[in-house]
Simulated scan of single mutants.
Amino acid sequence: MRENYTLTRLYVDTPLNAGAAVTLEPAQAHYLGTVLRKSVSDTVRIFNGHDGEWAAEISMLSKRGGSLIVTDPLRRHHDAPDIWLVFAPVRKHRTAFIFEKATELGVSKFVPVITARTQFAKLNTDKARAQIIEAAEQTERLDLPEVAKPKKLDSLLDNWDKGRRIIFADEAGGGHSVLDILRNYSGPCALLIGPEGGFTEAERDRLLNMDCVDAVSLGPRILRADTAAISLLTLWQSAQGDW
């Protein structure tokens, strides 16, 4: 119900059902007790990514931790649309931006890919998951997008499921109008964004020769990788997603 949206919302890694006890992480207890000044018997909202959203009452709160008792169901679970974001990691703060904003925009899976020009190949998936959880808590998502381990582009394409089409943001300008492609799209899809500096000619050739790839243009300007990712995902959601 709408009035519940004002309640604090937390992700918990615990099965949820009426009467269940939930142990809070120390950071969550600190946030509730010290930052928000919550106390025992106050109500919060919780979700775990697959059991929907529930109301829960604070049963214990201290500096070292706390606990909740699950009370009432609020919303049934539903998954985001089946859209993957395949992207080359960039600088830490820009990669964090991609995780945060793409989670807000409803991506279902992140697939980091290492290309010939990827400058920042290392990716802390635990930190990425924390960024995703925070974004999901703030934006009313009931599910959490998956984060795959980084994989080299050739290896990824070698094992690609041809039933999932790839929309390739071609910075070289040879792609079709993105809206023309998206308006006639259906089925599982992945959005592919390259690194700063773009794909090599060999990488482009391989992609363009795959039957499951559609190259699209994002306009006359060269966009940063994070801008391109969010722009393409926004267009996809408008044409094919849950908007």
Rank of each mutant, 00 (worst) to 15 (best):
2 R>I: 05
51 D>Q: 09
223 L>C: 02
189 C>D: 05
44 V>S: 01
215 A>G: 04
195 P>A: 10
153 L>M: 13
147 V>R: 10
77 H>Q: 15
142 L>W: 06
97 F>N: 13
70 V>K: 03
39 S>A: 12
172 A>F: 03
82 D>T: 09
179 L>H: 11
138 Q>R: 12
52 G>E: 10
155 S>F: 03
45 R>E: 02
67 S>M: 03
112 P>S: 13
167 I>V: 15
147 V>T: 13
70 V>C: 05
138 Q>A: 10
121 A>K: 15
158 D>Q: 14
109 K>L: 07
104 E>S: 09
184 N>E: 15
108 S>P: 01
78 H>Q: 14
154 D>H: 11
41 S>F: 00
98 I>G: 05
84 W>T: 10
183 R>V: 00
17 N>C: 08
63 K>M: 03
28 Q>K: 12
159 N>Y: 01
155 S>R: 15
207 L>Q: 08
44 V>R: 03
179 L>F: 10
233 L>Y: 03
241 G>Y: 01
42 D>W: 00
8 T>A: 12
96 A>R: 12
19 G>F: 02
150 P>E: 08
72 D>N: 13
242 D>M: 08
187 G>K: 13
229 A>P: 04
198 G>H: 08
197 G>Y: 02
212 C>I: 06
242 D>Y: 04
3 E>C: 01
125 T>L: 13
10 L>G: 02
78 H>T: 11
128 A>T: 06
101 K>C: 04
96 A>C: 03
56 A>D: 02
92 K>E: 10
45 R>L: 14
207 L>D: 06
227 T>C: 08
95 T>H: 05
145 P>G: 07
93 H>L: 11
221 R>K: 14
80 A>L: 14
50 H>K: 15
229 A>V: 04
243 W>I: 10
102 A>C: 14
176 H>A: 14
168 F>P: 00
136 A>G: 04
220 P>Q: 15
235 L>G: 01
144 L>T: 09
157 L>W: 04
111 V>C: 14
220 P>H: 11
14 T>K: 11
138 Q>S: 10
50 H>A: 07
139 T>I: 04
239 A>V: 05
239 A>F: 03
159 N>H: 11
240 Q>S: 12
190 A>V: 01
120 F>M: 08
88 A>D: 09
222 I>V: 15
152 K>Q: 12
227 T>G: 07
196 E>T: 05
187 G>S: 07
198 G>I: 08
197 G>F: 03
76 R>D: 07
101 K>D: 06
225 A>G: 08
217 S>H: 10
206 R>K: 15
75 R>D: 02
61 L>E: 01
40 V>S: 00
79 D>K: 14
163 G>D: 15
217 S>E: 11
166 I>M: 09
110 F>M: 12
93 H>F: 03
211 D>W: 02
91 R>F: 00
142 L>Q: 11
84 W>V: 06
213 V>K: 11
115 T>F: 04
81 P>C: 12
19 G>W: 02
85 L>Y: 04
107 V>G: 08
18 A>M: 06
237 Q>R: 14
224 R>M: 03
189 C>G: 02
114 I>H: 06
162 K>L: 02
130 A>L: 10
45 R>W: 00
220 P>N: 14
47 F>C: 08
228 A>S: 09
159 N>F: 00
229 A>R: 10
67 S>K: 09
45 R>Q: 12
20 A>W: 01
50 H>L: 03
232 L>I: 09
177 S>V: 09
102 A>E: 09
62 S>R: 09
181 I>S: 07
161 D>I: 06
114 I>R: 05
182 L>V: 09
